[in-house]
Design a protein around this nucleic acid. Structure first.
Lengths: 356, 356
DNA sequence: TTCAGTTAGTAACGCGCGTTATCAACAGCG
DNA sequence: CGCTGTTGATAACGCGCGTTACTAACTGAA
């Protein structure tokens, strides 16, 4: 005849729910006194003696405050919500980690809700709305939306009810503040690194030219070349699917175009997966990395970049930092501070490994 | 003189906090009636007319229930907490996704708390305790602990206060139920696949022989061979660091040991990262995959397995399923049902690609 | 002695909601 | 007409806590 609510574990016999009232009784004081001590009130006027007596009672009874009740009474939850596509997300996890850590530092709790959407206008909009709704039911004080790749998104209307910040994406219609990687600076730093290593003839394996990442990174590459008095040879820019196969094919096309001289001595791959394919194309032709052809990637997908042979030099997307910055921005917003900027750009650091 | 609590957004002027009282007033009924309608009470006895009037009022006012208050009054939160190392976690994210999705189906909310521990007895035990404590303050009804690799762990004592389930790890001391991959069956299925392809001389690139994954997978491999009347040649089992480099070196040792005949025609790599290195070793020697040497991996790390050339056939770790099963088990436990088993094994499916 | 000021603490209200007890109106029945 | 049962609703309590008002006791000064 086991009680249905008690866990089977005998160690859990301890009656659930030690409340402030219990603590008060145990310490022989009023519940108010306990509340004052626990919240460290300034103008409390509680004698040092009863204060310690209360603290002892807290220890002895194993009292644990009830966050929900506290939120209800104080009208603030200390919760933020983050909506993200946790599915396809080799990246989202880093954003979450950054946000989580920062939230922890700020003594806030991060509620994570799933949004299985690839396109905000797609058929799963419903789920995303539901996620937002659920978070608002929890009375989160702010919302974060995180995308797995840099793009424009549409945010559910109800998000307007609390401060909202977008991470790795930007508001396609409204004026919500957002935090995105500085793709342009990233492209610049990548090509600068190649120039610095003496490469002047650089091939580019491009993504879908329409997406923000491609636009920015290519622009940065052009800037870096321009500073050196060079131009990007359109012949050397090849787009492909954002996969290893796509990279392989693109690399083949670039490398085979110039049998001997004229062949680029370096490839700037706009993501690491494509760099992975480029490696194969290069090795297949009996060329060495970085001796004959230097390769630089983008994204710093650990599992690829750190394990390729030779290890891939690449530009990292600052996911953790964006997550942390998102929470910081939210904290500032909820504190009533004005937002710093509509769109904050975060640096993409170069990670030197062995492929340049 | 901006109020500090109002978001800057003008669309958010709508007064915060439409409560049931507001709805009641708007519909001209009592708050109780509203509560009855919203919670779909069985023996409610509310006329159809007032019921619709209430629902209309809910719509018009945009009422949203306050989950915290509801939890306080009903004494159940519908929240589960999951403690996981979200940091180094290419895997944890899949567990979380599985758990998240299942929780969503069960109409529960998953609170995720970080635990930056690599070893439960390490210096970060404090953080893990704090995470658990925080979750209990939120009055979660159950706890999940998820590890990034299969191992024994020590769980904070306070976890005993609510039903607790371990995912991808097991309780090193106590009797907490756990959910782990069936490593042995995985090892078996991998080798069976190789046998089926006609390979009888199989090399094994082993992990640290002490960890549960290595023990189980190797055991499974032996079983499969035994069924075919074969034995594992100890000469062909080489351990190495669980990295691409480690796999490369181990593969070199195996391949170079037998210049020509006697060389194994297949390699069973106990994880995909090592398989990645093995690929290099094989290609370096002018051998083809799977023509000369078939390769099978373990883990199904998407970024590696799906992008290697040729794509890697591997055994998948059922992270999502384990996450989902964890939530299901928790739901059963909190409902007072007896646990199914102390330790539930989850199948590791074979993923056919092109390396065998 | 009286009065203002401090110290140490408590009673009581309300946060938003679930839930139980209660009540009014009305029908049916003897 | 009085009694019971049903329908349709409400008043009131409590969940655990933050917070404001208030009190009682003890100073020290006039």
């Amino acid at each position: 005849m086991a009680k249905s609510t008690t866990p089977g574990n005998p160690a859990a016999v301890k009656q659930r729910g030690v409340t402030m009232k219990d603590v008060a009784k145990h310490a022989g004081v009023s519940r108010t006194a306990v509340s004052f001590v626990l919240s460290n009130r300034e103008n409390a006027s509680i004698s040092e003696e009863t204060r310690t007596r209360i603290n002892e009672a807290v220890q002895e009874l194993g009292y644990r405050p009830n966050a929900g009740a506290r939120a209800l009474a104080s009208q603030r939850s200390d919760w933020y919500g983050i909506v993200t596509e946790i599915v396809t997300a080799p990246f989202a996890v880093d954003i979450i980690k950054g946000a989580q850590d920062q939230a922890w530092l700020d003594r806030r709790f991060l509620l994570i809700a799933p949004s299985d959407q690839a396109d905000a206008v797609g058929p799963n909009q419903g789920l995303e709305d539901a996620a937002t709704e659920k978070l608002l039911e929890q009375r989160v004080e702010g919302l974060l939306y995180a995308a797995t790749f840099h793009r424009g998104v549409h945010v559910p209307a109800s998000a307007n009810e609390v401060p909202t910040v977008l991470i790795n994406c930007f508001d396609a219609d409204g004026k919500l503040p957002s935090i995105v990687p500085d793709e342009r600076a990233g492209g610049r730093v990548a090509v600068e690194r190649l120039l610095q290593a003496g490469h002047t003839r650089i091939g580019v394996i491009n993504l879908d030219p329409a997406i923000p990442a491609a636009v920015g990174r290519l622009e940065g590459a052009r800037e870096a070349l321009a500073v050196a008095g060079l131009e990007l040879d359109p012949e050397l820019v090849v787009s492909g699917y954002a996969t290893a196969d796509g990279g392989y094919e693109a690399a083949c096309r670039i490398l085979d175009r110039y049998p001997q001289e004229g062949r680029p001595t370096a490839l700037f791959c706009l993501n690491d997966r494509m760099a992975m394919g480029a490696y194969d194309a290069i090795k297949e032709r009996g060329l060495t990395i970085p001796g004959d052809v230097a390769v630089i990637g983008f994204d710093n997908q650990e599992l690829i970049a750190a394990y390729l042979r030779p290890k891939l030099t690449t530009v990292a997307l600052p996911f953790e930092k964006m997550g942390a910055l998102g929470v910081q921005t939210l904290t500032a917003l909820t504190a009533g501070q004005p937002i710093i900027a509509d769109q904050q750009l975060v640096d993409c650091p170069l990670l030197e490994r062995s492929s340049v």
